[in-house]
Write a protein that binds this DNA or RNA. Sequence first.
DNA 1: ATCAACAGGTCAAAGATAGTCAAAAGGGCA
DNA 2: TGCCCTTTTGACTATCTTTGACCTGTTGAT
Lengths: 159, 159
Amino acid sequence: MRSLVDQIEAYIKEMLARSPNGLLEIQRQELAQAFACAPSQITYVLSTRFSVEQGYLVESRRGGGGFVRIVKLPLNARDSLQFLVERIVGQEVSQQIAEGLLRRLEEDQLISRRERVLLRAAIRREALPLELPARDQVRAAILRSVLLTLMVPGMAGEK
Amino acid sequence: MRSLVDQIEAYIKEMLARSPNGLLEIQRQELAQAFACAPSQITYVLSTRFSVEQGYLVESRRGGGGFVRIVKLPLNARDSLQFLVERIVGQEVSQQIAEGLLRRLEEDQLISRRERVLLRAAIRREALPLELPARDQVRAAILRSVLLTLMVPGMAGEK
DNA sequence: ATCAACAGGTCAAAGATAGTCAAAAGGGCA
DNA sequence: TGCCCTTTTGACTATCTTTGACCTGTTGAT
């Protein structure tokens, strides 16, 4: 028999496929109940099968009315940015490298001039009151998050 | 199901939108009754969703004929940004407050929808791999930097 | 002036979700 | 079998919401 992870994974993908916008919002515990497993099992499925590398973005909210939102990032948008993410994930990024990356994004028209200025403000040294190497790590994490967001359906080409 | 806060928030915003002068006056208990909840729930909604950072001013009167007045203050000048910076400098900013602030910037058309989404990606919990309180402090610093950038001549109204 | 009734405010506890982490359980394979 | 990797679980933590007991300010009657 297929393992639980596999079943839950298949279920979520089925739901995503049916969703018109490739977006699914669901309660973790509800899903856990449906599969009669521990809620943390759902978290496990999400982290192993719906990771960034696999092209998914997962967000959530706790407390009453909480939920987990899963977004499928389209493949073509992924191709263009995937390598950038891989280059940065888990790494450190200096301000110089970061600015180069932003410039490149603008050149490739993935972000506007103004967006670049704003994002630059968010990752400049003065905006990150941390010592190295933490500063470069946080900068990497921020850029990673921004790049992922650029891959979300509807984000491309809407500058 | 959406949580009560979300419903009440939506209701108030709807009322505000209909109001000709962007002003709403209502009785706390009346609203609480309408939603069948504790009056303090209304206070909670007001403090989490209608904060100053989000561009709302809430005043009230107790006793007979008491009321709660909610006013939306438009953010159109550099002066107001200056105010926001001062409020945030050297402080900690939770993700919730930060998102409210960004929403407000968009509502007042100081940033576009897309810019908000990108900036949100830069300050969300997952993008800042730090423990509290450092995370909230870095978020404050980033927002401060972004706000200052928005104040730079030539940035306003060039979305 | 005083007091009772009538608002709204505060704050902490309880409730409702989701996340983290590591131990236990399974499964494949040398 | 022994080892390693993946899955499953549960105790503990973090975050957000909802409620209620108690507090403070206003108004109006006496």
